[in-house]
Structure formats: structure tokens, C-alpha cells
Design a protein around this nucleic acid. Structure first.
Lengths: 151, 151
DNA sequence: ATTCAATTGCAATATTATTGCATTTAAAAT
DNA sequence: ATTTTAAATGCAATAATATTGCAATTGAAT
């Protein structure tokens, strides 16, 4: 479930990272925070079509560098962005949770609670982090499919 | 280690999938099979710069559809391609192994032997498959780093 | 209120991907 | 072996996506 955040949370967040509180930035933040899934770059663009494409790129990059959001490519290679959980630090993301990519609605769910079982790598490989992806059908689409099947 | 394959293996492979044995296709296959890592689209393009870009796209798509290769996006969102292990079927890939993405050389290693520990998804999610990514330093780059550090 | 630096938006450019079509090539048929 | 046919390639055009430079604007500090 998306955390409930208000305007002031976002302003504080920007302050904390020495970013100016501008309207495009606040809008991007509130859009992302309102959703339970990650938001794809195309979606952001079409919803915020009055914000310049380039500005959007720059906002997303800035947020990512500051550790406010994290970027995750879905299984089709499109970039998706989601708010970082509190323990993300600048330049060092902790998004080692499960990314569930629904093949029907394309949404990417960040399932924070699910942590990965430990994996041992072959000799010589050292790792900074893991990311687990799953693809399949999300609850919403499962329901939808069941509903249409009944008709 | 890359399997040793010869020209005839590739011709058989194409035959099996009712694809004509053309020179561009055979070259793509032999390039991919000669490497122990997946090959990025940019690399393919620059090495095979005499093959038309469009042709390359079409070859890769055809191979992927037939289950000859699989496509994996590295952590920067660039497409990488690797030969499928024998148990890939058309339209249904079995690439549920670990994809190790080296942050130094950018190479993607398909570590087939490493299978994933079972993961239980939250209620409502049904999955078709998992993909585990790791990023870090591969054996080659670790050696390289050690060598330069000594100097 | 004024100043200054950060941020935005626009224009231009670069990179990456897709589509249509004429030409070529591999395989099938004769 | 030659001809025929369908598949595959390469080129040109276009679309979609990403990046860079710069002038105008805006938020925050003075």
C-alpha cells in the first residue's frame, strides 16, 4: 500500500537533499507516492505532459542520485521509478527486494517485505547486490481475468 | 565456459527452426556462442558493422521467438543476448538462472548452474518465472583491479 | 527588494528502434 | 542444372527515445 504523504513531507524531502521545491518536482513526487506500484517513464510523461520531457529526465536523474527514488527496468527494458524506502542512501540504493512485473498491466510492484534467500556465487564473483524479478499476473489482473471469464 | 560448437551445429540449429542459413545469421550465432557472457546489442552492432542494423534487429527477434537465444536487460537497461540452454522452447524461455552484471566491464554472465531458492509471493500474485540479477565485479575484473593496485 | 544560483523550457542534435519496399539469396520444384 | 518461389537482406524514410547548450524563469539567500 502506498504510504500516505502530504505536501509537507515532499517539501521536507526536497529540503533535506538541497533541492529546490519546484512545482514539477512536487508533482512528480506526489504522483509516485500515490501509487502502490512503480511508475514507468512513459506513464510519467503522458500524465505530466505539460512538464517538459527534458525536465522530467533531469528530475528523475536528480531524485535517483539523491536516493529519493530508485529506477528499475521492467522485463521489457522500460525504466520504472519508485519511491525509495527510508533506508536508501545517496548513491547507494537498497532495492534488493522483489520486483514483480505483471505481464498484463505491465505494472511493476516493489515487494519490499520479501527479502531474498541467500545465494552463493561461484568463485571469483563478488557482488554489491541482488535484484529478483518475477513476472506473472498481479492480483488486480487476476480478478479482472476471472470476471471476464465468467461472462 | 562457452560450449564448443562448429559451423554445422549452427546450420542444424537454423534448419531445426525452419530458418534459412544465411551468412549474417551464422555469424551472429558463432559470435554469441564463442563468448562465455551474453553479448550486448551495441557490441553486436559494432562488431558486425557490415550487417545492416535493421537486419540485426530482425535476426535477434527471430532467434528469440524461436527460443534460440534469450534476451536479458542489464542493469542499465541495455539488451543483451545469450544462447539458450537446450531446454528452451519456442515462446517459452527457461532463463531462470542468475544474471550477473559486472559493473566494471558491463558483461552479463548467465550462471546456469545457480538456481534460485524458492520464494513465496504474497497472496494474489501468480508467477510465470523468476529472474535473479546480481551486480558486482566479475573474476576477470577482480584480477585486473588487483594487478593495477600492485603497481 | 535585490541578487544569485538552481531549475526549467525550448531548440537542436544524437541515439535507438520500426516500417515499407526493392533487391538478393537460399531452398524447393522442375 | 535451371527455374521458381518465398524468405531474408539492405536501403531509405520515419518514429521514438535520450542528450546537450543556452536563454528565460524561479526559489531561496542576502
Amino acid at each position: 500500500m502506498a504510504q500516505t504523504r502530504n505536501k509537507f513531507d515532499f517539501e521536507d524531502l526536497l529540503d533535506k537533499h538541497h533541492l529546490k521545491k519546484t512545482s514539477p518536482r512536487l508533482r512528480v513526487l506526489s504522483m509516485m507516492a500515490s501509487k502502490s506500484t512503480a511508475t514507468s517513464q512513459p506513464d510519467l510523461e503522458s500524465v505530466m505532459n505539460d512538464i517538459d520531457r527534458v525536465t522530467l529526465y533531469r528530475i528523475l536523474n536528480a531524485f535517483e542520485e539523491k536516493g529519493i527514488i530508485h529506477k528499475v527496468f521492467d522485463l521489457n527494458g522500460t525504466a520504472n521509478y519508485a519511491m525509495c524506502s527510508s533506508n536508501c542512501e545517496e548513491h547507494h540504493h537498497h532495492d534488493e527486494h522483489l520486483h514483480f512485473n505483471c505481464t498484463m498491466c505491465k505494472n511493476v510492484y516493489c515487494l519490499d517485505d520479501l527479502h531474498l534467500p541467500p545465494v552463493t556465487l561461484p568463485e571469483g564473483f563478488t557482488t554489491q547486490g541482488f535484484t529478483l524479478y518475477a513476472n506473472g499476473t498481479c492480483p488486480k489482473c487476476t480478478k479482472k481475468a476471472a470476471a471476464t471469464a465468467k461472462v
